[in-house]
Nucleic acid binder design. Sequence first.
DNA 1: CTATGTGCAAATCTTTTGCAGGCTA
DNA 2: TAGCCTGCAAAAGATTTGCACATAG
Lengths: 146, 146
Amino acid sequence: MMDTSFAALDDTALQKGKAWLARAKVRPTKQRSSLAALLVGDGENRHVTAEGLFLAAKSSGEAVSLATVYNTLRAFCDAGLMNEITVDATRSYFDTCTEDHPHYFWEDSQELTDAPAGEVAFSRLPDPPQGSEIARVDVVIRLRRK
Amino acid sequence: MMDTSFAALDDTALQKGKAWLARAKVRPTKQRSSLAALLVGDGENRHVTAEGLFLAAKSSGEAVSLATVYNTLRAFCDAGLMNEITVDATRSYFDTCTEDHPHYFWEDSQELTDAPAGEVAFSRLPDPPQGSEIARVDVVIRLRRK
DNA sequence: CTATGTGCAAATCTTTTGCAGGCTA
DNA sequence: TAGCCTGCAAAAGATTTGCACATAG
């Protein structure tokens, strides 16, 4: 249910986190820097729920309130640093990769991961109905344990 | 936000609704028959939210409680009569078409509709990771007014 | 008649918000 | 210093559940 593999919260990770915030002109408060470090401190893409990130912060020793985690994830999305992915009607997932790419959703563990790059392609896409344009195409490959 | 075009609740629609329930061996109570008539009474596919169906029932004169609408939609899904579609983290949508097909999601009106049949095709799909199989591939084309 | 469904209200769960105090630029 | 940020608790929505009553087969 939660992504347990977060970046370690060391100085290197903190620097990377702060650089990430600076790139989007997001003010680096203590809480935001910690969360950023957990998210991008090791250069990996992450798919998190608010609850998962909250628990990760807590167990890494950084006390951040759940409300702040929500507000911060929202702020990161508004700043273009993350994307919200809709795969489950009851929970929001946030992705540190902001490009439009396909996902695997593991129905057993409720985990969200990237589908292998370049392995999904459309051969046909409809023209958008008149007066509209395609904002994004979400592809979620739902996996079930066999 | 809600689908306002529901089938009229006349005798023909009721018969169709009851037949639909019978096909899946779902007990045709008064409320279920009414909701089924609204959903499939005219043979069209429908994409509804619980709230939307609840309001449609109410304005067609059939008093059904919101809790029952939720329970009923859940029951229809369990019986294989409908599918839940995840497009919005805050609301659940239900589709009377149970085949795996792509959708348009109109971001302005929050409406969900079918994308034109046959207009979406994959040229490549990844092999499912070992030990897993693909349960479904959700494709949601998000549209924005231009 | 018996199992199942219904309605209401209350509970639950996720996410947002108001406000007083804290911290960054 | 001024304005944005944080934390807490409370609010807000969507959905589910407990329980007494109703009803289909």
